[in-house]
Design a protein around this nucleic acid. Sequence first.
DNA 1: GTAACTGCAAAATATTTGCATCCTT
DNA 2: AAGGATGCAAATATTTTGCAGTTAC
Lengths: 138, 138
Amino acid sequence: MSTPLLEILKRHQLSVTDSRKKILELFQHSNGALAHADIEKKTGELFDRVTIYRTLQTFVDKGIIHTIPTADNSVLYALCKDECTQGHHHDNHVHFICDTCNMTYCLDHVTSPQVSLPNGFQEKRTDVVISGICNLCN
Amino acid sequence: MSTPLLEILKRHQLSVTDSRKKILELFQHSNGALAHADIEKKTGELFDRVTIYRTLQTFVDKGIIHTIPTADNSVLYALCKDECTQGHHHDNHVHFICDTCNMTYCLDHVTSPQVSLPNGFQEKRTDVVISGICNLCN
DNA sequence: GTAACTGCAAAATATTTGCATCCTT
DNA sequence: AAGGATGCAAATATTTTGCAGTTAC
């Protein structure tokens, strides 16, 4: 199903460490997005808080995960599809946040719509975040 | 042009104080969104940092301003259109963030597109954030 | 062996809360 | 006069940085 951990890390020229393996695994086994706090909770005392921050940042830089915009303050991360290359994310899919279970999904098969902008505005990237009720809570 | 300050505050049953007048005025004179830090900078030493936090929260609660989702950690606020009522925002317009000048615009006249979701997902609210180059920087 | 990664400590930043005082109505 | 808003102090939470020790390759 999902690409082996080691292959992903190696493809991005990252050395294979416990924290990277574990955190990447968490993303693969979660069908939604994760926040720093989620990861901290799920890894227990395994890694330092700082290591988690740095690992997430590294993954973002390398194009392994991407951040998801949220209206409140929180920062969420989710796996990129395989086509993401370093420094160039192609995550133009729709994100869905369930108001009930609070889960955040990447709807990989729903692509962002084309929006026509006023004169002079030039689109480079479109993020769509839809909230409502997910299929499990419905 | 814009609704008088006092009228807006009174309509939402808020007492008229210096900080509320000043902060609301800032939003009216800005054609973009503002962050807590922007407001702090523009008001100088006039008000306490905490007062700004509380004033912004009050405005959000009352439906005078709304937050804008951003992929990084920052929280941005912008004026709601007049139809917003307490606890019920109707800000279904598109937001635009300029990569060059870093300004955030509410494109009030560009409404969020309808997105068709997978079975079982029910939309309640759609946020669209487009980044690129704005009309002034273009 | 070397460069990169981690843990720990601490700094920097951001946000929230309690309470006494002041201001709006 | 009474309730709400503010300022200040301090608690809490979040993120970043420096550095020494450890690990991957």
